[in-house]
Design a protein around this nucleic acid. Sequence first.
DNA 1: CTTTTTCGTATCGAGTCGATACTAATCAGG
DNA 2: CCTGATTAGTATCGACTCGATACGAAAAAG
Lengths: 193, 193
Amino acid sequence: MDKNPLVLLELVERLANLMRAEMRKAGADEGLQPVHLHALIYLSKANRYSNTPQALAAYLGLTKGTVSQTLLILDRRGLIERYQDDIDRRVVRLRLSTAGEQLLYEAQPALAWQNATRNISPNRIRNATSALRETLATFQEDNEGAMFGECTDCTHCQKLSQRIFRCGLKGDRLSGPETRRLCWLFEAKRESE
Amino acid sequence: MDKNPLVLLELVERLANLMRAEMRKAGADEGLQPVHLHALIYLSKANRYSNTPQALAAYLGLTKGTVSQTLLILDRRGLIERYQDDIDRRVVRLRLSTAGEQLLYEAQPALAWQNATRNISPNRIRNATSALRETLATFQEDNEGAMFGECTDCTHCQKLSQRIFRCGLKGDRLSGPETRRLCWLFEAKRESE
DNA sequence: CTTTTTCGTATCGAGTCGATACTAATCAGG
DNA sequence: CCTGATTAGTATCGACTCGATACGAAAAAG
């Protein structure tokens, strides 16, 4: 087995290519392209701070103009809903519509991946995840990009009680389920070694 | 750390997106798109059985028409050379031109990845590589797609002497360096457990 | 208060993609 | 050997994706 990081990169890229082709198939019935499905999947996971065109652009690595075009199509198709932020009226907030949730439920975009990983033990998944997460963290640190992650691993997250948390950056109280959603403002806890 | 395969998929996709943006930057000076650079990189690694439009299409997960278009541009730019196969006159064989090699050398498309993995030990790289390779193998098994790999890990590979190998499928003698090139005909050795 | 910055949308043009049709070469079967 | 089927790659078309740019509205900065 190889210890060369470039072999790992090759596998990452190949698997991503294959999954993009799967996404294309999964979206074909509804006339959706891979980028559309990716946007819907993102919105199904994004928390209250991360449901904006800008956050989506950061997550997908696209420009805001490109994301705006994508969202136009999804809105027209009734798969997402847009509403104005309460505080900053420039900001558009997004949510999945019922039709969007239904479509994701039926398309099962990640099914091929579930099948492909069936023989890999949870421990090996965890190890691979850890290595790739650290790769992403270093990459984003180098490029001043957003890492994205869940509150439970975030430096801002305060635990108030068994089920109640608080975002130290924004000040809001968050439920347990909400701390497991994807956040644009995420910052990894600093590890002391 | 998460043991859910879907988290791993998310990281794979995000990293691939980020690397695609890096490829776009790396190719910008020469007016090349990510898919062009990917084709050049593939040709820099492909062995004698894998240097055809069809193999490239299988590797990149694209149709033959799409790959043909890509190769047209690379040929026009003098970055690749095309020649006819000795045996089957339908088959076009491809090689990097000197200009193509030079361009890859200067563009350094994988530099960002090298930097992003700088804090990950070789052992962790190996573990992640192993998990992703198995994911790819299962995926391709399910879909009857080509795994691609190196002779040294291939079921067809016979060792004749210290430096001389033989492809059991094709019958050719191969040097040590050539056994480390990417092969379309690769089949993983069967493991007895 | 004025100027600058920010957020998202509209528009444009270049590039990517799959599907399809086609030609030349090879293979399979009678 | 001949004929029909299959294969490899190219040309073409149209739909789609992308970044760059301009713009209007809102917010921030000085």
